[in-house]
Nucleic acid binder design. Sequence first.
DNA 1: CTGTTAGCGCATTCAC
DNA 2: GTGAATGCGCTAACAG
Lengths: 326, 326
Amino acid sequence: MREVRAGLADVARSAGVSPATASRALSGAGPVSEGARRAVLAAADELHYRPHPVARQLARRSGTRVLFAVRDAHTRILRDPFVARATAAMAAILGPYHIGVSLTRLELECAAELDHLADDRGLTAVILAGHDHELLQHLPAGLRGRTSVIGVGGADVDSAAGVGALLTHLYALGRRRIALVAGPSWLAASVPPVDAYRELTRAAGLPTRIVRGDFTSDRGRVAARSILRRWPDTDAIATVSDATALGVLQALAATGIRVPDDVAVTGFDDAPLAAAVHPALSTATHPVEEVAAAAVRTALGEPPPSTLFPSVPKPRGTCGGSASTA
Amino acid sequence: MREVRAGLADVARSAGVSPATASRALSGAGPVSEGARRAVLAAADELHYRPHPVARQLARRSGTRVLFAVRDAHTRILRDPFVARATAAMAAILGPYHIGVSLTRLELECAAELDHLADDRGLTAVILAGHDHELLQHLPAGLRGRTSVIGVGGADVDSAAGVGALLTHLYALGRRRIALVAGPSWLAASVPPVDAYRELTRAAGLPTRIVRGDFTSDRGRVAARSILRRWPDTDAIATVSDATALGVLQALAATGIRVPDDVAVTGFDDAPLAAAVHPALSTATHPVEEVAAAAVRTALGEPPPSTLFPSVPKPRGTCGGSASTA
DNA sequence: CTGTTAGCGCATTCAC
DNA sequence: GTGAATGCGCTAACAG
C-alpha cells in the first residue's frame, strides 16, 4: 500500500516549488514566503514526508553522535550510577534531534585519544567528564567549540557548598575530629570539596585528616581502615561519593564501630538507594538530568551555564542528630 | 600543519587505484587483488585516512542510531537504574561502530509511535523493553528485522528461576504465608515470576497472595499496606523489583513490623546499593551489560540468544536465615 | 524571495 | 579484478 518513501523532491514537486525552497520551508531556516511555506508544509503532511536525518547531517556536516567521554583510571567507571544516569539523560534529550549518544572511557593520559576523536567526522560534539585543568588547556583544535565539560569549568554542581553544608552539619552535631575521603588527585573536581573542608577545619580549629579515594566502595573500605589506623579518635568520615561512603560503612561495621554513635558518615550524589540503607546514608542530591542537559546544550553551541547547580545536603541517619530513617 | 581531512578519493589517488577499489579494499567487501589491497591500506595509513561515518551510513542506508524504547506507564521509568544501566551499556558497545543510542519512553498504547519509528530512516535498529505479546505481534513491517527485545521473547533473564529460587529459599527458611508483589499486568515479563510463584504455592499447599506492583517504591509501599490489610498473617513478601522491595521495607518499618523477624522481603535486579541497606536486601543479580549487548547484536541482525541469562539469587539479610549483613 | 547548480563522502551497480 | 558512472537525500552558494 505504502508507496516508496516520499523525499524532499516529491514534496517540492507536489507543492509546486523547488527542492531548495522546500528545504528552507521545512528546516525553518532561510527566507520563504508565507504562501510557499504553507504549501510545502501541506504537501509534506499530505505525503507523510519524513526527512532523512542521515542525509541532512551529511549535507550539513553536523555529525550524528555526541560522545560522552569519561576520564578515569578504571573501566568500571562506565557502570557508575552517575555516569549511567547522565548517559541515559543525554540519550533521552538528544533523541528528538536525531542525535545518538556514545559512551567511552578515557585513560588518564588521553591526549592521543582526544586527537583521535577530534577527527571523527561523525561526532557532533564531545562531553568530557573526569578532566583536569591541563586537559582543558590542551584540547585539540578540532574539538574546540564542540566540546563541553561536566564538572569544574562546565556544567557543575556546587560541590563545595554541598560538602561544606554536610561538614557544617557534622560540626553542629558535635563532631570535632572529622576526616575526609577526598576524590582522586588527578581530578579537577576533587579540589572544591577539599577547599571547603580545609576552610571549615581552619575556621573551627579542627585537625585536618585527608585521605584520597575514588568512586568505588573498595577504596572506601581501604580509606576507612587507613583513617582508623592513623587517627583512631576520628568521630566522623565525610566522603565525596556514595559508593565510597558505603565502603566506609562496611569497614566500620567489620570493625565493630557503631554508626552514627561512634563515627558519623556522609556520602555524595544521592545514589538511588542511599535513603534506604540503615542507618540511612547522609548525602547530597544533585539534579543529574539537568546537569546532563546543560552539558548537551553547551556542547551544541549554547553558552555554558553561568551558575552552579545546587548540591542539596540530605542529612540522614549516618549523620546522627536529627536523623530520619525513612 | 594538518591538511584538509583525507577522503577516500585521496587515498585512492595516492594508492594509484580508483575510489571504487579503495572502497572495496577498506570496507573489506568485494573482490580486490592482494596488491591493491596492500597499497590502499598503506596509503590510508599514510594519509591518516578516517572514513566519514555519516557518508558511509548514507550510502549504505544503514542509519546512525539505535533507539532504546521502553514501554511504561510513567515517564520516570527513564530514570530507573536498570534502564540507565542498559542504556549506558548500549552506548558503550555501539560507539566503536559509529552508532549512537537514543532513549525514549513508549506509551502503553504505542502502535502509532511504532509506526512513526518505522520510517525514521536514521534509525539503525530499535530495542524494545516493557512489551507485551500483542505488541510483538503487530510490529510495523518497517521495523521487522531490525528490532530486538529485552525481556520475554528476546534477551531475557531467567526471572522464573530467579524468583523461584528466592521463593524456595523463603520456604526453606520456614515461611509459609508468602505474598507476591507482581509486575504490572500489561507487561509480558510479569508472567514468568507469577508462574513460578503459583507453582511453588500449589506444590507446597501454600495460600496464594498476589498484588500488582510496578517498578517504583511508591507502589511497593502501597502494595505492602494492601497485603497487610488483606492477609495480616503474611510472613514474607517477594517482589520483582528492588525499588518496590524498598518501598515494602519502608511501609513495614512504618508499621513497626520487623524485617526479617516478622516478615521477610526479597527484591529483584540487584540495584547498586541493595547490598548496603540494613538489613541487606535479598535480591537476584543479572548481567545487565550482557543482556544489553545481546539485545544490540540481535537488533543488528545476529540470531537472538538461545538461552536465558542467569538470574542468580542473592539471599541476604531481609530473608532471615543465613543472612550476611555485609 | 526563489530556482539552479553543486556538492557532502562514500558505496555500488555496471561494463571492461 | 578494476574503474567509470551514478546515486544516497538533502543543504548551501549563487544568481536571478
